[in-house]
Design a protein around this nucleic acid. Sequence first.
DNA 1: CGCATTTGACCCGCGC
DNA 2: GCGCGGGTCAAATGCG
Length: 539
Amino acid sequence: MDAEATRSPPPAFQFPVKLIRTTDHDHDSSFPSDIRRRTVIDEMDFFADRKHGADHMMTIISNNTDHDLKDSGSPAGLELSVNTGLNLLTTNSSSEKSTVDDGVSSKMEDKRSKSEPSQLAVLQAEVERMKVENLRMMAETKNNGIVPRQLMDLGLVAATGGGGDTEDLSLSPSEGGGRRDRSRSSGNNAENNNEDGTVFEQDKKGLSGRGTDQREESPDQVWGSNKVARFNSEKTVDQTEATIRKARVSVRARSEDAMISDGCQWRKYGQKMAKGNPCPRAYYRCTMAAGCPVRKQVQRCAEDRTILTTTYEGNHNHPLPPAAVAMASTTSSAARMLLSGSMPSADGLMNSNFLARSILPCSSSLATISASAPFPTVTLDLTQNPNPLQIPNQPTQFQVPFPNPPQNLADASAAALLPQIFGQALYNQSQFSGLQMSQEQQTDRLGHQSQPALQQGQRNSLADSLATATAAIKADPNFTAALAAAITSIIGGAHQNNINSTNNVQTTTSNNNSNGNITTSNNNSNGHNKITNSRFPGN
DNA sequence: CGCATTTGACCCGCGC
DNA sequence: GCGCGGGTCAAATGCG
């Protein structure tokens, strides 16, 4: 498996979900023996460098917005750094031996940025525009004495930067040694202060009843706790914080393997039988960096044990390998969608639901938002056949006619496209969310404007944002073509792979120069593209 | 021997 | 106040 880490991944267009094939399923007590005994389909490697094509779009957006906004230090960056729980960092983690398939990422990133200057420029311009707009909105809201908490939170998160140094201020319980002092006072948040004096937003620690959670890090440590605001003052703010803190993103995907790969390294730290499900729930924490607060739960669906539900919460405090960025982008976008419309109230969540449908009418079965769950949760259901996956009635039609692929491949395709489509739509949605929120808050203060009116406004704003962004993308025929080619290739590749009883889907889409040379190929060499994660020996 | 996983115990919040 | 369930810890265990 170590060989995998050092292997140079082929230039590929891969996806955020990899169905892990573990070699020691027999040791896996997490799943029923019948599941463990099943013939394991070869890995579906949806991860990889998305140097080109659709995924590129998402990556560029993430990178640019992240850097631009962060660098500028402008409030505009706040929104884009929403603490969705998963950073959108694309910086490659250096040399973690088990880092998943990121060996050539840097090069590829560079190459990509060089090869697609026009798209980049367009997107950068778009980001710039968004930034300015956000700045304007911030000023407006401040003048009104209303500061969308969302933006504040984002800003704070942004301030912490991609390094997650904040979390390094203290050791995680394990590293720190000794059992957590659960009686520890929760009032001392000094360690949570940022270098620049900004209190790490989610310092939730302070809010957490569990003193232990102060220990480190991030907000997300409160991941399992229901402790919400105990401060009466700034109640609204705290409620919103709590909402953000607890936001979760669940991904449902069919997999007979122990868990899906999201490009990160995880260590199992617990397993419990959850009520109502004969399948145990496994708890993992990210081990890519000490003190990374990101956790995830993996559990099989009781009704259909081929379905794996992976729930993420937390914010990575370290750079992510490209492979992880894909999933992070997806989940992050989902969380952003959830949170962007999110007031802690049920209305807010319902709004998000509405927004989800508005943004992604095609994904009504792919993305759902639960307001009833203990924590606001976005569920990305990749088990349903997204056929066709499209965004109707949008300025730029984005139609991906799936050829009704087999279930697993449908999942793969959905997973593959999610970061681009879902993420893009959500990204755009997030652009107006600040405005939407401020409007909403003002409206609330003024006395509850009718929901339909707000929603209409949201829809219009969304449509504008989406139109602008999609138009920008569309403006570059090369990119559009590459995107279409990539998608076609994905679908074809998935199909082909299925026929070959191989789930490994590798699509290479190169757009290496500015003269429109587009090459799309389906790299489907059996047994060669398999990517395994040495840190995933199975759970 | 080091590291990851397993698993029972513990803590906490919530509902009754 | 008590029981239940979820989440986490950490010693024990297993594996490479």
